[in-house]
């Protein structure tokens, strides 16, 4: 399972980027972005986001 940021909800707090073991999350002034090619799906960002602005990407198939 991989994850993505719901950009309209993201408050740019950087909780997710602080815990990502892959450094797969990059912050800008407006939002966090998850780079899926390096994400390993550990879900740490997902459970850390204080406002649930990260969601699962349904598996294709």
């Amino acid at each position: 399972m991989k994850y993505k940021v719901i950009e309209s909800l993201c408050d740019v707090c950087a909780c997710c980027a602080s815990v990502c073991p892959q450094n797969a999350i990059i912050m800008s002034e407006q939002k966090a972005t998850i780079f899926l090619d390096i994400c390993i799906g550990c879900a740490k960002c997902f459970i850390t986001c204080p406002i649930s602005a990260i969601e699962e990407i349904p598996d294709e198939s």
């Binding site: 950087a14 980027a17 602080s18």
Partner: peptide, 17 residues
């Protein structure tokens, strides 16, 4: 908290849960 500069320099700044 993000501490990206440290990461870019090769220091592991990732926080445990």
């Amino acid at each position: 908290p993000e501490s990206r500069i440290g990461k870019l320099a090769g220091i592991d700044t990732t926080l445990k849960l």
